[in-house]
Design a protein around this nucleic acid. Structure first.
Length: 574
RNA sequence: CGGGGCGUAGCGCAGGGGUAGCGCGCAUGGUUCGGGACCAUGAGGCCAUGAGUUCAAAUCUCAUCGCCCCGACCA
């Protein structure tokens, strides 16, 4: 490819609005162009990277025995009513009517399509297990997309669906998929990714894992045990809570605390520590029932966990409406309306001598005791893990990091086969719903996450396995007829030898050409100039390491092939 | 959906009732050229949209739309 005619221009300055490294660099290097919020055109270089990532994914899916299919983007309302998700999914799914007025949706995921396909083609356990996958555009009308390709509304995704006769069979396959995913990310060139236990959200099912690119730019908080390898998304992470000093004693009594409402204010007023308090955090359910969560003052509520207990999404609430005293809500002597949900976190269990709201304006209770004052309470885990907590498996102190979710795998169970009525005949003649797994990878998000991991202050840095081209051929002084002639010849030879090369055929100053090459991030740069030509050699620079060597022109092709081969093997066998 | 910010040339920005500006980029010619060179000439604008106010609106008012950031939300 000649750079002079490559669509997309390199920019000196970052376009207004981009703040994430990957977003800025993709724009500046001419890889993407925004069309609307969360909607982008991939220009040729980005599309080439995307296709290379897709190729790796295809190879690994095929190795798992996957069969590639293509589900429709547009589906009729009825298909989604079969699973119940036509109504359970809200604004995230785009709906429209076709010319006859029929309700249609844009596919944001394809469980329904996969089951629909299977139920019309599979009747017997003999036809199980199988896995189908596709690479396709998804549209999800995210309430808030951001960060370039990290969080978009339209994106290319690999989604796969497996069907099994038994849970054991799913377990076996799931384990294989788990390993295949690790290979995929390794081959894409991630050095710093991790697998965590994840939440199942609207997908349903029990077991799930999220593949996380570890980076500060990530939106997810991760909890990791450095000793035994326990790792989990904060949303579902568990821990042994930070010890509390169980100093019992003192008589329960009301104290005037006036305007002290927040935990900080109350602690300051009473000269105590947050871990000696019990706070209330309130929400309402989608049908406007009150939800009150009590937990030790130094912990924060985990809304994912609380949602599961409340069996509803949670919304902000005006507690006064429910007759509560904002700022003075306590876990003792509580009067709640019928139908309210109350949850007591495990951090309160066995807690002695604590402060909590008196459920009375301007008053708090002191010297409360869980064992003495709280009866018939079922303590549950509704708190986030925090600094100082230890691993439930090995007792080591947990560590925290951030990550971008670049893929996930789920054991769906029979959620969709049941709701849609897909059964197969079993060996004993009975019928049974197949058990499903599903497996997703965001292609563009993976592309952007690699950049977050590898790019430097000069620009993009592509791993050899997914680089849009392997070689950036950058002859200097193209006004020199000798250089131009050799450059043209070398480019021809490289192309003929099957080397993926981007040829900067522009007659521009060295500075522009060299900085452009660094911005675009191809792994190998080959510089030819009057000086090197005199020695019958070229200068070869590795983008990532900066390592620079001179190679005789006659050996260039074979050397380049060796370097590319080597690098790819190194990444894949790391 | 809440809070904040921004919409003027391909990109980055200035201007603030009366000829539309700067830098980069782009085009042509020339001189230079191994780290974003220089000179000359030139093209490129419905100043987001719509209604007002005014003799006169890019500028003031109101509304709408779009984009960014924070929050809510999220496989």
């Amino acid at each position: 490819m000649k750079l002079s005619t490559l669509v997309g221009q390199r920019l000196k300055e970052a376009p207004n609005g981009a703040s994430l490294k990957s977003h800025i660099l993709l724009l500046r290097a001419g890889y993407i162009k925004q069309v609307a919020t969360g909607i982008f055109t991939l220009l040729p270089p980005a599309q080439r990277v995307s296709l290379k990532i897709q190729k790796i994914i295809r190879e690994e899916m095929d190795a798992l025995g996957g069969q590639e299919v293509l589900f429709p983007v547009v589906m009729p309302r009825e298909l989604w009513e079969m699973s119940g998700r036509y109504t359970s999914i809200k604004n995230e799914m785009v709906r429209f009517k076709d010319r006859t007025g029929h309700d249609m949706v844009l596919g944001m995921t394809h469980e329904e399509a996969a089951v629909f396909m299977a139920m019309n083609t599979v009747q017997s356990h003999e036809q199980l297990p199988f896995m189908v996958y596709q690479l396709q555009t998804k549209f999800r009308d995210e309430p808030r997309s951001r960060g370039g390709l990290i969080r978009v509304r339209e994106f290319t995704m690999k989604d796969a669906y497996s069907f099994h006769a038994t849970q054991e069979d799913l377990d076996t396959f799931y384990q294989k998929a788990y390993e295949a995913y690790k290979r995929i990310y390794k081959r894409i060139g991630f050095k710093n990714f991790t697998v965590v236990e994840g939440d199942n959200g609207m997908m349903g099912g029990k077991v799930s894992h999220e593949y996380m690119a570890v980076t500060d730019a990530g939106e997810d908080r991760l909890v990791i045990c450095p000793k035994c390898g326990y790792s989990s998304n904060m949303e579902v992470a568990v821990s042994v809570k930070d010890e509390n000093d169980h100093v019992s004693g003192g008589e329960l009594k009301e104290i005037f605390t006036g305007n002290a409402h927040t935990i900080e204010e109350v602690c300051a007023f009473l000269e105590t520590d947050a871990k000696h308090t019990v706070k209330a955090v309130c929400y309402q359910t989608s049908d406007e029932k009150l939800v009150v969560a009590f937990l030790r003052g130094d912990y924060e509520v985990n809304e994912t966990k609380l949602q599961k207990i409340a069996q509803s999404e949670l919304y902000p609430v005006d507690v006064e409406k429910f007759g509560l005293c904002a700022g003075n809500i306590g876990c003792l002597n509580l009067n709640l309306p019928e139908g309210s949900v109350v949850a007591y976190d495990k951090t309160i269990e066995g807690l002695e001598n604590f402060v909590t709201g008196a459920n009375k304006k301007d008053f708090h209770l002191v010297h409360a005791s869980a064992s003495r004052d709280l009866h018939g309470v079922n303590f549950v885990d509704i708190a986030n893990v925090k600094e100082g907590d230890t691993c439930v498996h090995c007792g080591e102190k947990l560590t925290f990091t951030r990550g971008i979710e670049i893929g996930n795998i789920f054991q769906l169970g029979t959620k969709y086969t049941k709701s849609m009525g897909f059964k197969v005949t079993m060996p004993d003649g009975t019928t049974k719903e197949p058990i499903m797994g599903c497996y997703g990878i965001g292609v563009g998000r993976s592309l952007a996450s690699v950049i977050e991991e590898k790019a430097d202050d000069k620009g993009l840095v592509w791993p050899m396995t997914i680089a849009p081209w392997h070689v950036h051929f950058c002859p200097l002084r193209l006004d020199d007829e000798n250089v131009r002639a050799f450059a043209t010849e070398i480019y021809k030879e490289m192309t003929a030898a099957g080397i993926e090369v981007l040829y900067d055929d522009r007659n521009l100053s060295a500075g522009i050409k060299l900085t452009d090459s660094e911005l675009m991030g191809l792994p190998i740069r080959v510089v030819l100039s009057p000086k090197t030509l005199q020695e019958q050699q070229v200068e070869v620079t590795m983008r990532e390491s900066g390592e620079k060597i001179f190679i005789p022109i006659k050996d260039l092709i074979s050397e380049l092939k060796a370097i590319v081969q080597d690098e790819i093997e190194q990444i894949e066998n790391a």
